[in-house]
């Protein structure tokens, strides 16, 4: 709790400043709705918000899991076969640079309206950081350790499981931290075109010039992101504690 104090206090301070500026009409209400108005928008239709947030959370979670599974698997394969890596890695950059908004309408045609498109959109944007970070982790093993494994005539599979994988742990963690935020962005972009969730509410609110509702959705998305990160931190912290080759947990909580 003590560690969270600065964050909570600063957020509270920002909210107060915002409310004050708006109260003095220094910033226009209809462009930057004051916090109390955003809160009011949230309490007007709590049921709708709850349902939409759950849908977006579910889609982001699924998207993240798919990107985690596929990213890790591909990184494994690529780290084993150098030739394949040279052939495929440049193509993977496609996933990093593709503006999801541009291909989202196509996803609707591929996957139809609803959850599948949203999950696909989320997974596409979250995929690259997982792949890249895990691959870098697998490959940035200290030279001496590699030589030691060679000395003991370990094969490449053994090297991968017993040396590369453990040392990629932290790298994957930082990649996933980026991926959590991206998965949520991908979800919202998917929801713009496929419907449902907070993205759909944002889309509707924009048409109706309800900026307070847009901000309310942004607040919920931010909370979703925070929740995702905390969950991730918890999982990795726990894993780090129980794994035998643990480095100091200090590194992880930073």
């Amino acid at each position: 709790m003590k560690k969270r104090m600065p964050f909570l206090l600063f957020t509270l301070f920002l909210i107060c400043v915002w409310e004050f500026l708006s109260w003095r009409s220094w910033i226009p209400e209809s462009l930057f709705p004051p916090p109390h108005q955003v809160l009011k928008a949230l309490t007007e239709t709590p049921h709708e918000w709850r349902e939409a947030t759950l849908r977006s959370a579910l889609a982001s979670g699924e998207g993240l899991l798919i990107s985690l599974a596929s990213g890790v698997l591909l990184a494994f394969i690529l780290s084993l076969f150098t030739l394949l890596k040279r052939a495929l890695l440049p193509l993977a950059v496609f996933f990093q640079t593709v503006p999801i908004i541009a291909i989202a309408p196509l996803l609707v045609i591929y996957f139809g309206y609803g959850l599948p498109t949203v999950v696909a959109s989320s997974a596409i944007v979250a995929f690259f950081p997982v792949l890249a970070s895990f691959l870098i982790g697998l490959e940035s093993v200290e030279k001496e350790k590699l030589e030691l494994f060679e000395l003991y005539q370990a094969n490449s599979w053994q090297t991968l499981i017993k040396l590369r994988l453990p040392s990629a742990f932290l790298s994957l963690y930082s990649g996933l931290k980026v991926a959590v935020g991206l998965a949520i962005i991908g979800t919202v972009a998917g929801e713009f075109v496929a419907g449902g969730g907070l993205g759909s509410i944002i889309d509707e609110a924009r048409t109706q010039q309800r900026v307070d509702r847009v901000f309310a959705a942004l607040v919920l998305l931010a909370l979703l992101g925070l929740l995702g990160l905390s969950l991730l931190q918890f999982v990795f912290y726990t894993l780090n504690k129980i794994r035998p080759y643990a480095r100091s947990s200090e590194e992880l909580s930073s």
Partner: peptide, 12 residues
């Protein structure tokens, strides 16, 4: 009917 978002054009 099922209401879905419209994102322009006539692809749908």
């Amino acid at each position: 009917v099922q209401w879905v978002p419209y994102s322009g054009g006539i692809a749908g």
